[in-house]
Every structure is written in C-alpha cells, then in structure tokens.
C-alpha cells in the first residue's frame, strides 16, 4: 500500500527490484520459444529412432530429459542399441560434448555478479548450442532468471518431441519407418553443409572426418572398431589437424 501510493508521486517510478527477476524470466521465455519449436522435429526423430531401435518410449524420453544434447545423446543411444561397452558409450558421449566446455567458459564471462554456486550449477544444465548462441548474442549480461526462462521452453520441447516420436513409432508401417531412418542424417547434412560452404576450414575438417570414418569402416583390419570409437578417432584427428592448420583468432 505504502509503496504503491508513493510511486504515484513520481512521474517515472523505478522498476521495483523484486519485479526484475520476473521481467528477466519472461524475456528469456520469449527468446526460448523459437528454439523450443525447432527442437520438436529433431527430438521427434530421436524418439522415433530410439524406439525403432528397441528402447521403450519412456527410456528415450528419460535420455532427452537428462542429457539435453543432440549429437551426444544420438551417438550414445546408437551405441546402447548396438550393445557397446559402457566405457565406449561414456567416452564417445564425453568427446562429443566437450564443445560445451567452450560455451560454458564463454557464458561464465557474461554472468551478472553475485550468482550463487547453486544457481550456476542449475544454469549450466541448460546450455545447448542454441540456448548458448541466443544468450551470448542477445544479452551483454546474463542473469539467472533470464537463463532459466530461456532454458525452460527448449527443455519442454525436447522432452515432448521425444515422447511423441517414441509413441508414434510403434504405429508406423515398416516402409515408412525405413524412409524416416534417413531423417536424422539429412538433418546433420542440413546442419553441416551451409557452414562448410562458407568456410574452407570447416570444409577440410568435415572432409577429413568423413574420410577417416569411411576408412575406419571399410579398410581391412580396422573394421573391428565399433561406431563410437570410429567417430571419436575421426573427430579428434580432424580437429587436431583443423586447430593446427586453421587456428582461429580469439573465439567470442
């Protein structure tokens, strides 16, 4: 009562401090909406593939809700389905997710001061390529409430899409399932070709990775390697070469 009557006395009452978190949260929610929509078809494809491979829909959804990654959980799930060892599954997922180190480091430079350790740990869970890009590009200073708002939509979208994909899979006829088997790879191609067009370095690195992964698949003597190690070895060699021959100037 007192504060509301006081604020009528001034022309432009300053935003009460207690409302700032809510505004930040709502702004984050708005920024996250397009990401959430973009996640639906990808997570749908994931649910479809995981269930097609033999996992129950609830396990596929659990993977999405605990991993919240694209490439990492796709590769890990493929390895689970292939009956790979736990070590192989863990290492492959780890290597694919190493890029989050860079994003987390970069976000860490832009946080509002005074965040608690627990808040930092909670925000970290929602770092994906997309939420990172939006947060890094839209805000000069990233608050806890903004980040939580930003994460929420994509998280819900990722889980919902997976569940829907998993449930729908069991209802689809076999030839349609075959046709959808290529969806994910087509998406990967759609992700990698545009940057490869623009950057010589990316072209070389993708080329080397593809060449190595083909060699490791087809060359006699190397064929015993399972998919996880193939991807890991190809990635590490291609990126070492990339970092050596195409060092980047200060990455933002």
């Amino acid at each position: 009562m007192l504060t509301s009557s006081l604020s009528t006395l001034t022309d432009q009452p300053p935003t009460p401090a207690k409302n700032r978190p809510r505004q930040e949260f709502n702004l984050g929610l708005r920024h996250g909406l397009p990401i959430a929509l973009g996640y639906l078809p990808v997570s749908f494809a994931f649910g479809l593939l995981a269930v097609k491979g033999g996992l129950p829909a609830w396990v596929a959804t659990l993977i999405s809700l605990t991993n919240l990654t694209s490439a990492g959980q796709f590769a890990g799930t493929n390895l689970i389905l292939a009956g790979a060892s736990l070590l192989e599954i863990t290492l492959t997922t780890l290597v694919i997710n190493l890029r989050y180190l860079l994003m987390s480091l970069s976000l860490g430079q832009k946080l509002t001061p005074g965040l608690t350790w627990r808040q930092r740990c909670l925000m970290a869970f929602g770092i994906t390529d997309e939420t990172f890009t939006v947060a890094a590009l839209e805000r000069t200073e990233i608050s806890f409430h903004y980040m939580i708002g930003l994460i929420l939509g994509p998280y819900a979208g990722w889980g919902t899409g997976t569940l829907l994909g998993g449930v729908v899979c069991t209802l689809l006829p076999n030839n349609l399932q075959n046709a959808l088997g290529i969806t994910l790879y087509a998406m990967f191609i759609a992700l990698v070709v545009p940057p490869a067009k623009k950057s010589t370095a990316v072209r070389w690195i993708v080329g080397v990775a593809v060449g190595l992964s083909s060699a490791l698949t087809w060359l006699p003597g190397l064929r015993q390697l399972s998919a996880g190690w193939r991807i890991m070895i190809a990635t590490i060699i291609a990126c070492l070469g990339g970092a050596y021959f195409f060092p980047r100037k200060e990455v933002q």
Binding site: R99, I189, S213, C239
Partner: peptide
C-alpha cells in the same frame, strides 16, 4: 571444430 567433425563422421 568439434561439432563439425562429429557431424561429418556420424553421417
């Protein structure tokens, strides 16, 4: 470069 290489090798 990691995501690009992974996408290539996975595909």
């Amino acid at each position: 470069y990691v995501p690009y290489a992974v996408l290539g090798a996975m595909t």
